[in-house]
């Protein structure tokens, strides 16, 4: 039920983000989801890609610092309070959300969010209990 995400340190310099993306596309690695968090000094690029190992290797070869983390990918019901409901489940059980980002599925109308939780196992358990649709790596491939 867990998905793997890679994060990349991006120096705050022109062209650095572009270079990371370029390196991946040259290797024909598909980016399924993407988010950037940044300060004035640096950024963190988070990606879900088609081939983590390949992506990590090629990025590291190009002097990027890369880290792999486990995240949960969840479908959000297409309702006004869809995301709020999902977050509510976690909040009720005091499970901290470090960050979330969304991407849109090609297949359905549902939005999909990537969540990084402090306690991922507990998070999965809680979401399952509440019948949230947690996506597997296989599921994501089709999106």
């Amino acid at each position: 039920m867990k998905n793997k995400q890679i994060s990349i340190f991006i120096e705050n310099k022109e062209g650095k983000l572009k270079k990371a993306i370029e390196v991946l596309s040259k290797e024909k690695i598909n980016i399924r989801a993407l988010s950037i968090a940044d300060t004035t000094k640096f950024g963190i690029l988070r990606l879900i890609v088609s081939d983590n190992e390949k992506a990590k290797n090629i990025l590291e070869k190009n002097n990027f610092v890369v880290k792999e983390n486990e995240v949960i990918v969840v479908e959000v019901p297409d309702k006004p309070d869809g995301l709020n409901t999902i977050l509510g489940y976690l909040d009720d059980k005091n499970i901290n959300v470090e960050y979330i980002y969304a991407f849109v599925s090609k297949k359905t109308n549902e939005a999909i969010v990537v969540m990084r939780l402090e306690d991922i196992d507990n998070g999965i358990k809680v979401l399952k209990e509440n019948n949230a649709n947690i996506l597997t790596p296989e599921d994501i491939k089709e999106y």
């Binding site: 994060s7 968090a37 640096f42 983390n69 470090e98 990084r116």
Partner: peptide, 18 residues
């Protein structure tokens, strides 16, 4: 220079490192 050991995907931790 940052390194694999230092780097975190969480902004909070990165700022704490700085």
């Amino acid at each position: 220079e940052t390194s694999k050991e230092l780097f975190s995907d969480e902004m909070r931790k990165m700022e704490a490192i700085e």
